[in-house]
């Protein structure tokens, strides 16, 4: 049962990821990417990481994709006016894709004899309670730095997108 769900989810993930990069219209790309993110959240649920799945849906499918869709509509890109790349670049990209996939898969295929089969000890390690303790005890300093990073990113985004307007006022 779980196997069937996994392979269905994996097919959805890979198919929508391919649709994302092949759609001519950026809005179609963004919508395919939302489906891709939902299927990845499904993978997290299969791996029993419930809290992470919820956070993934909120952050990626919610915040990031809404931001991207707003930007696409702001730039009025919802028409396929993208000029085509030269055919040599496309062939080179395809060859590079095949090589990267081949090298990664070939490297990972060798791991199969090394990883032993999964053993579950019954210990609770990924409920919100345990995650919160790990996050605020062991990883306290990186956690604070992440908050600083988000603040700086927010200020930077506002500054960068405002600069042009100030220049035109002078």
């Amino acid at each position: 049962m779980g196997e069937i769900i996994f392979y269905a989810l994996a097919a959805v993930t890979l198919g929508t990821a391919l649709l994302t990069i092949f759609s001519r219209n950026p809005i179609h790309s963004a919508l395919s990417l939302v489906v891709c993110f939902f299927s990845i959240a499904g993978h997290y649920l299969l791996l029993n990481a419930q809290f992470l799945a919820i956070v993934h849906i909120i952050v990626y499918s919610g915040a990031i994709m809404i931001l991207m869709l707003f930007t696409i509509m702001l730039m009025n890109l919802n028409k396929d006016d993208e000029s085509h790349k030269p055919i040599a670049a496309k062939i080179a990209a395809t060859i590079a894709f095949c090589l990267v996939g081949l090298v990664l898969l070939a490297g990972l295929l060798r791991t199969k004899p090394v990883v032993e089969s999964y053993y579950y000890s019954g210990e609770d390690f990924q409920s919100i309670k345990v995650l919160g303790k790990v996050l605020l005890n062991e990883y306290m300093v990186p956690f604070e730095f992440a908050s600083v990073l988000l603040l700086v990113a927010m200020i930077g985004a506002v500054l960068i997108s405002k600069k042009d307007k100030e220049k035109s006022l002078k």
């Binding site: 990209a93 590079a96 990664l104």
Partner: peptide, 28 residues
Amino acid sequence: TILKEIGVETYLYLSALLFSIGVFGILL
């Protein structure tokens, strides 16, 4: 969890394929 049924290496292959698709998108 699902790992008992399909093993961790299937997730490795899926992640590798997804990463390659991302590289392909960047280049294409």
